[in-house]
């Protein structure tokens, strides 16, 4: 009932607006049309300039209202440079934005039709064209230069001594794998995947897999100030590892392996102090539409000190031990490497 009422009401409003429109059209004809048109022209010139002024005020208000909700300072060392570059681009485009919009609306107001003037016949001027071709070209060249310098840095190999963590997307969560004590991720094959006891399809014939640790809760542990390289993969469709706090992201594509690296700057605890938010966590968002659960594909990152990390690691079981309880006794990870290697050799 209320639905019908709303529809009737909306229709009524449209009819009224239409009638007002028609009435004003007739009124224009009845009164001196030329005069009414002049008045309308003046009114529109005023409205445009008012739109500009209120628009600038609105932009200011919007900024005041939302700036507090932006991201905290970059959680990665690389992101600091990103933020600086972003700000520089913001200044360049901001100035151009203000100048061109101001000119646009000022010209509209200043050169509104008047009987006293005739338009100035001004068809071309090569000097002007050259000026405003060259200046944007130089500005763009500068932005490209700064951008590419950063781009090549972050897409280059990770610095020596970096840690490696694998993150694999599936509908709709993240699987995380640590290389274990040998520091190497063992081979995996999608044909060996089994949701019950081999979610990543680790190839147990490869000894390097034996000490790998797999986390299925979407929580990644990394060490502060140590560069970490994420090896990114996908089990099914394309996902994307989005790390807003570290200012970067990379697609997870089935069939190929992509990478991304960064150096965490603050531990989660430090970030909680910086943001005055005791519940702060680094989040991993899926940034490539991957199906109905796309919006819920959330992971987290715990950045901690080496000591905290070691303590956490000591409590983890290798995935091999987890899925082969009969073969490997629950042993600390570091020893498990040597232990679990034996049964395979004997096979």
């Amino acid at each position: 009932m209320s639905g019908t009422l709303t529809i009737v009401l909306i229709l009524l409003v449209f009819i009224i607006v239409y009638q007002i429109g028609k009435a004003s059209e007739y009124a224009t004809i009845l009164r001196d049309e030329a005069k009414v048109n002049k008045q309308t022209n003046r009114l529109m010139a005023w409205l445009l300039i008012a739109f500009f002024v209120f628009g600038i005020w609105g932009i200011w208000e919007c900024h005041q209202a939302l700036k507090g909700r932006l991201l905290p300072p970059s959680g990665s060392v690389e992101g600091v440079e990103y933020d600086a570059m972003f700000e520089a681009t913001m200044w360049v485009t901001g100035i151009v934005f203000l100048a061109t919009q101001a000119i646009l609306f000022w010209f509209a107001y200043r050169y509104q039709a008047s009987d006293k003037r005739t338009a100035f016949f001004f068809a071309h001027n090569n000097k002007l064209e050259i000026i405003w071709t060259t200046i944007p070209a130089i500005a763009m060249a500068a932005l490209v230069a700064i951008g590419l310098k950063y781009w090549f840095k972050v897409t280059d190999d990770a610095p020596k001594g970096h840690a490696v963590v694998e993150i694999v997307g599936k509908q709709f969560n993240w699987l995380i794998r640590y290389p274990g004590a040998d520091g190497a991720l063992g081979a995996r094959d999608f044909r060996k995947i089994d949701d019950a006891n081999n979610v990543l399809g680790l190839d147990w014939a490869d000894n390097k897999t034996k000490d790998d640790i797999v986390a299925q809760n979407g929580e990644m542990h990394i060490v502060v100030n140590r560069p970490v390289k994420l090896v990114i993969g996908s089990r099914d469709v394309i996902h994307d590892v989005g790390l807003p706090h570290f200012r970067m992201k990379m697609d997870a594509v089935p069939g190929i392996s992509t990478t991304l690296w960064f150096t965490p700057r603050y531990t989660t605890k430090q970030m909680q102090e910086i943001t005055h938010d005791p519940n702060f966590v680094y989040e991993i968002s899926c940034d490539q539409m991957c199906g109905k659960g796309h919006y819920s594909m959330r992971g987290t990152i715990v950045v901690e000190t080496q000591a905290e990390y070691d303590k956490w690691l000591a409590g983890q079981k290798t995935y091999y031990a987890e899925t082969h309880p009969e073969a490997a006794p629950a042993a600390p990870v570091t020893e498990a490497v040597a232990d679990t290697a034996k049964p395979v050799v004997s096979k």
């Binding site: 529109m44 445009l48 763009m140």
Partner: peptide, 24 residues
């Protein structure tokens, strides 16, 4: 690079309005 022809267009539109006798 596309910003360059785009900028040229914008400046040309602005100059088209300059010293015009604008009908709104």
């Amino acid at each position: 690079l596309i910003a360059v022809p785009s900028a040229v267009k914008v400046f040309n539109w602005l100059t088209t309005m300059w010293k015009g006798n604008i009908r709104f």
